[in-house]
Design a protein around this nucleic acid. Structure first.
Lengths: 264, 264
DNA sequence: TTGCAATAACTTGTATACAAGAAGTATTTT
DNA sequence: AAAATACTTCTTGTATACAAGTTATTGCAA
């Protein structure tokens, strides 16, 4: 394209106008656009799953270079994933030394349990007020599925159904944002939960409690629903022995909180 | 460095053992170590402040290159800061096009107000139970300072004192983690609050409400304290006209929520 | 053997170059 | 004149090279 610059009437240099920087609002056009399956997203999700499932135990090193080789990508997206995990307090990065899976702060777990209860109470109260018949039926169906998973002894699917139950209540209460907050909080508790999992008859009890909560919502009995919810969430109580004796260096203690009585 | 390798008795190649990767737990030694005033931290803080203060209005473009020139740093830390803001829903980045200050989702603001109330109720109830005399005196002092700022008409300092008041209650309730969550939630509401600020007599009313809450805590009257707190937080209510008429394209509407009655 | 200093290798932090795509501008065509 | 098309320039995503600092290893000395 040598003749590209066609002879112009004005021999002055082209002096192209600098591109005007419009301020196009982030239009909805982009929201449905192909979600760029970013590499960092994959790394982030894998690492987070490994951490919350305790496959990567607290204190384990996370080496960026090893991840670049494993995924065949450069350090930039890997680093991006690690930084996201840092924000969520799941990893600790020590400047020029190394990156490690964060230990679980006992105080955070305790407060997360309290906060979650407070927020779920909101969603349940709203669900009592606003749940439609179809939403109630959907929740009933989730419980049924959970019962089947309990019978089959499928811990993994059981837990997914448990999550769906609480999510469905939040949806019925029209509180998707609060459900996101609850999920964020759950991450902080998840690793502790993994350590206290194997309790005999736990799955059956959870299902029964879910049935009770749903029935109270159907009856539009807010106080009963909230009361049952509190009992339900209380099943995951902090047991000092878990972290003091069994896994002493998976946790970090905060003396100011450790001395507190458990009177939440 | 030619003569550095001193003559050895073993002429075989050195074959240094590869460095064993220990898993040193992120010891506390590092927490007090000089907090690396990372460049990205500065950029992040500046941008966040500009956004929540509405100096950067929703829809404004954020150009990484411009920031690199302004701060004299490379794109890497700038990008890090932008990504953190993305996590907090304060900016939208459109893959190969541009980065923009996010518009305010009305539904998020509404839910954030509800969530904050639920969490602050927790801290107040706990403060009623656990606040020490010195902590109560400190809160009283904060209110006094706030009164003085109100008299001086210093909006900025007044707002800082307001924040300190709520933080002190959370501290008295031994819930630093929940206070962090509240702060995170506040960010989502902050921009909306900025738009509804200039109300006559607002500062005096806030101070009076704070006094009432503190008195209830001193009296160990949990129900009264919570009731007053709810009234207090209700002063920041969603007013449709603010975003529908005055600043129509600062906000994003979610029809599923927009049609809801305001019955939180 | 034990302690200590030098050193090499490994870590993360930062800068920079390149790639891919989006959008405004200029040109051509109808 | 208006619309379609080509192109230039800008944007962010990614890879890579280098800088700064930490730590295990090594060798040496007491």
């Amino acid at each position: 394209m040598s003749g590209k610059t066609s002879p112009k009437a004005h021999p002055v240099k082209k002096e192209r106008k600098p591109r005007a920087r419009n301020a196009p609002p982030p239009v909805e056009r982009y929201t449905h656009a192909l979600r760029t399956a970013k590499n960092s997203e994959v790394v982030y999700r894998d690492l987070r799953n490994d951490i919350v499932a305790m496959r990567l135990t607290p204190g384990s090193p996370i080496v960026e270079k090893a991840l670049t080789e494993r995924y065949g990508i450069s350090r930039t997206p890997v680093r991006e994933a690690v930084l996201r995990l840092t924000e969520e307090r799941l990893v600790d990065v020590i400047p020029k030394s190394g990156t490690f899976v964060a230990r679980i702060p006992v105080s955070i777990v305790r407060e997360a349990l309290v906060a979650r209860r407070a927020l779920e109470e909101v969603t349940v109260r709203k669900a009592v007020k606003r749940a439609t018949a179809s939403q109630l039926m959907e929740i009933r169906e989730i419980i049924q599925r959970q019962q089947e998973m309990a019978d089959a002894g499928d811990e993994e699917a059981f837990y997914r159904a448990d999550k769906d139950f609480h999510a469905a209540i939040a949806a019925a209460g029209r509180h998707p944002g609060i459900w996101e907050m609850i999920q964020q909080i759950r991450i902080q508790v998840e690793r502790y939960r993994m350590l206290t999992l194997p309790q005999h008859g736990r799955m059956e009890r959870v299902v029964n409690e879910h049935v009770g909560i749903l029935d109270a919502i159907v009856d539009r009995d807010a106080e009963m629903a909230v009361s049952l919810l509190n009992d339900h969430l209380d099943t995951l109580r902090l047991e000092i022995t878990v972290f003091r004796d069994l896994w002493p260096n998976y946790f970090i203690y905060d003396p100011a909180v450790d001395n507190e009585a458990n009177d939440d």
